[in-house]
Design a protein around this nucleic acid. Structure first.
Lengths: 246, 246
DNA sequence: ACAGTATTTATCCAACGGGTTAATTACTCC
DNA sequence: GGAGTAATTAACCCGTTGGATAAATACTGT
């Protein structure tokens, strides 16, 4: 019954009988990781329940240990997968061929939309940081995938300075952290912020407003032309300016 | 033994004999909340252990329930205390009497230094957001303490626009969220960011650099004069520019 | 068709963790 | 100095939870 929903990962897909049940190790592993992602992001590391993960994956608890490992290893696997996904999508942004201010806007919009589309990513990072990156430090995969990304941003900044669009050569790492921060904090803390400020920060209009604000802030700072950009920000009626990036 | 360290809250302080032990309900409550703050911020909500809190407070587990309540109530009490503390310090910032750009710089520096001095505050907020503000929503105290704060910022922005220092009248809530975001994300995620970017973001120089970057970014965006500010940012040798705000 | 292996299930358990109960001790006020 | 109350302690309860064991079942190559 449960096997009907998961395609066999092996292309051969024999479409066998399922008199009782079929085996599906690859599919099982994926379902476990997906279930674990949901569980860890919903309840944190300590709050996550191994049994719930198993149930959600339509599996037996023993399967987790068989296919991945104990709770911590499972968590690290999920985390690595999450980083892999965002960095690989970023690689497709193609910032090299845009003029610098547009490239920055694009990066901000992508980051914002990615975080919106993948709220579990935010939770996972929060959880990992509460654990002071204990797990991530043991990962070799993750460290390697970031220098190309930084170089991509560095190039944009340099091009912007050369063309006269940008007034300063900011450190690409600082810039990216700031861009990520503006989206990340707003979204990851939207629950408490909504309470203390008495606004629903996740309402459609509020989100549009936020994106416009962030783009205005960063691009204005880099180019020195604040007024024009922020004015756009004040009347974000047109959905075009807020289009999905991916 | 343990009572020697805590002054009696009742001014009368009889300096009695401590043949065995004295009572100290107020002190006990404070010690419990302090211990709970540490425990919750170090391990999150689910990861926190009631027994450890008791031990750390030099108390019996039963005391927590007697003086505060169950784990959730304890957590909410800690959270409310944390909000109370930062908002009350902010009230002393006296932004009204500074010229607008300086006031913004001051707010950024305060926020940054406060987060640096109170890392548990960051953890607590992260934890609460992972719980989708479930506890905070039940709190009546917290909601009320924020509108004055927003008005304070609104006034600064308005003055800045009137004086011509600022080129745009940004929404004070957006502005504050952005200011908080730039510091919060950097610090709360410093563990994972340090790993993926291969830099120690908490090293002294890195922190100075970050503060300069944030001030440059925000003030430049508001005033439209990026170059000057960011140039300062690139040579933050003088500690004066990075002085403690509180 | 059969032996061997990979995958999955059905149980079990010891430690843990939040919370409670009941007894004990310090303090207050008369 | 003693009754009544507030604060504190010690011990226990019981559902939960991560993890382990061993048996069963599907699959593979021969």
């Amino acid at each position: 019954m449960r096997r009907e929903s998961t395609q066999r990962a092996t292309g051969l897909a024999k479409a066998k009988q399922n008199l009782k049940w079929q085996r599906d190790p690859e599919g099982m592993r994926l379902r476990i990781l997906e279930a674990a992602k949901q569980e860890f992001s919903a309840h944190g590391l300590a709050g996550a329940r191994v049994d719930r993960i198993a149930a959600k994956a339509g599996a037996n608890k023993r399967m987790l240990y068989y296919h991945v490992g104990n709770k911590d290893e499972l968590y690290l696997a999920v985390l690595e997968g999450a980083y892999d996904k965002i960095r690989s999508e970023e690689r497709g942004l193609d910032l090299e061929h845009l003029d610098p201010p547009e490239a920055i806007r694009r990066l901000i919009e992508f980051t914002w939309n990615y975080f919106l589309r993948n709220p579990e990513f935010l939770s996972l990072l929060q959880t990992e940081n509460l654990a002071r990156a204990k797990h991530l430090k043991r990962s070799t995969k993750v460290k390697s995938m970031h220098s190309p990304f930084v170089e991509m941003i560095r190039t944009v900044v340099r091009r912007g300075v050369d063309s006269g669009d940008f007034q300063v050569a900011v450190d690409p790492v600082q810039l990216y952290i700031s861009i990520a921060a503006l989206s990340f904090f707003y979204l990851s803390n939207s629950a408490t912020l909504s309470v203390i400020f008495g606004r629903d920060l996740l309402a459609k209009d509020a989100k549009d407003e936020r994106l416009a604000h962030m783009v205005g802030l960063v691009v204005a700072a880099l180019t020195g032309r604040s007024a024009a950009l922020f004015e756009i920000a004040k009347a974000p009626k047109s959905r075009a300016a807020v289009a999905q990036t991916v």
